[in-house]
C-alpha cells in the first residue's frame, strides 16, 4: 500500500498523519512539542510507525507548522508549506463546500477564507495572543479546572459572566474580580469562551466575509464551550471535523501526494531518521552590528543546514 506522511510541528503540539492514495487517514499521532521539535518528530515517527500495517511504502512526506523548515530537512520532505495552506487543503478535502476556516492553535490563531476550494484570503493574529490555546490553558489552571473539562463546564452555564477579553492580562484581572464578587466558576468559564470568540472575530476576523459552512479546527476546537460560543455569536452551525487537531498534518500529507505526482520520486529519508543523531546549535555572527543568531543543524556531527542570518552568508554550506 502506498502512503503519504504529513508532519505539523507547532509551538505546543507536534502532529503526524498518514494517508493512503485515496487521502483516507490511516493513522495519526498527537504529542507535545515541549520546546524540542527534533525529539518530538523522532518520537512521533516511532509511534506512528507502530500503528501502520506492515506492507506500506511511503511515497511522499511533507512538513508544516512553525518548525516546518527544520522538520523538512530532518525527514527529507517533498514539500514544506505554511500552516495556512496545509489547514485549508485538509479542510477543503474533508468538507469540500467549506467557505470559512477558523484555526486556533497553541500560540496563534488564523482565519482562512476559501471560495470554490481555493484560499482567497487569510489573516493571522498579530501582536496579541489572547484567544489562543496557551491562554485558555493558563486560565484553566488558574481556575483549577482540568483543560479537558473546561468545555463541558462552560456548557453547563446558563448566565455566562461578561469577561473583558481584549487583552489576556486584563481578561485575567477581570476574571479574578468576577471570582471575588461571587460568580460561579462555570459562568466565568463560559464567559471566557465568549470573550475569546469576540476577540477572535474582531481581531483576526476583522473585515472578512464569514460565510458558512465554517470549519473550526486546531487544538482549541476540542473545547465545546468555544464551539458553542462561536455558534451563538455567528448564528449558525460551526463544524468541528473528526481530525480537528491534526488537520495541518493531513493537509501537508495531501500536498506531499500532489508534489509526488510531479516529481515522481520521494526525498523522504524513511522512518530510520528517528534513530539518527540530530542536533542543533547556534552562534552569534559578529560580521556586522546586527549580531544575527545563526542556527546550525547537525546530522551525526556534520552541519547539514544553517539559517537565521539576515544577509544569507551562512545559508550556503561550504562543501
Amino acid at each position: 500500500m502506498n502512503i503519504y506522511l504529513g508532519i505539523d510541528v507547532g509551538s505546543i503540539s507536534t502532529n503526524l498523519a498518514v494517508i493512503d492514495e485515496e487521502k483516507k487517514v490511516l493513522a495519526w499521532e498527537y504529542l507535545l512539542t515541549g520546546g524540542r521539535p527534533i525529539e518530538a518528530v523522532q518520537r512521533g515517527l516511532k509511534e506512528i510507525e507502530k500503528k501502520l500495517p506492515s506492507q506500506v511504502e511511503i511515497r511522499g512526506g511533507g512538513s508544516t507548522g512553525s518548525a516546518r523548515h527544520l522538520t523538512g530537512i530532518l525527514i527529507g520532505a517533498d514539500t514544506v508549506k505554511s500552516e495556512i495552506i496545509a489547514h485549508a487543503v485538509a479542510a477543503s478535502h474533508l468538507i469540500p463546500e467549506v467557505k470559512t476556516i477558523f484555526e486556533i492553535g497553541g500560540q496563534d490563531s488564523k482565519i482562512i477564507i476559501v471560495r470554490d476550494g481555493v484560499v482567497v484570503d487569510f489573516a493571522m493574529n498579530t501582536i496579541c495572543a489572547a484567544g489562543t490555546g496557551s491562554f485558555l490553558d493558563h486560565q484553566a489552571q488558574r481556575l483549577g479546572v482540568p483543560i479537558e473539562e473546561f468545555g463541558n463546564l462552560a456548557l453547563q452555564s446558563k448566565t455566562p459572566t461578561r469577561v473583558a477579553g481584549r487583552c489576556t492580562v486584563f481578561a485575567e484581572s477581570d476574571m479574578i474580580h468576577k471570582q471575588q464578587t461571587g460568580h460561579a466558576t462555570e459562568n466565568i468559564v463560559a464567559g471566557l469562551c465568549q470573550a475569546l470568540v469576540r476577540n477572535y472575530l474582531n481581531n483576526v476576523g476583522k473585515g472578512k466575509e464569514l460565510l458558512p459552512p465554517v470549519v473550526f479546527q486546531g487544538g482549541v476546537a476540542a473545547n465545546k464551550g468555544m464551539k458553542a460560543a462561536f455558534e451563538e455569536e455567528l448564528g449558525y452551525e460551526v463544524i468541528v471535523p473528526e481530525y480537528y487537531h491534526v488537520m495541518g498534518a493531513i493537509g501537508v500529507a495531501i500536498l506531499a501526494q500532489e508534489t509526488i505526482v510531479e516529481t515522481k520520486k520521494t526525498k523522504f529519508k524513511g522512518f530510520e531518521v528517528s534513530e539518527v543523531d540530530y542536533k542543533t546549535r547556534s552562534f552569534e555572527c559578529t560580521g556586522c552590528p546586527n549580531l544575527c543568531e545563526v542556527i546550525e543543524v547537525l546530522m551525526s556531527g556534520e552541519v547539514i543546514s544553517r539559517w537565521g542570518d539576515r544577509c544569507g552568508k551562512w545559508e550556503v554550506l561550504e562543501k
Binding site: 512553525s66 508549506k81 505554511s82 495556512i84 481555493v118 493571522m124
Partner: peptide, 21 residues
C-alpha cells in the same frame, strides 16, 4: 521573521494554487 515568512509563503502559495486551478 517567522511571522513574516509564514505570511509571505502562504500569500504566494495562495496565488500559485489559484493560478493552477
Amino acid at each position: 521573521e517567522a511571522g513574516l515568512v509564514t505570511r509571505l509563503e502562504a500569500f504566494i502559495d495562495l496565488i500559485e494554487r489559484r493560478k493552477a486551478k
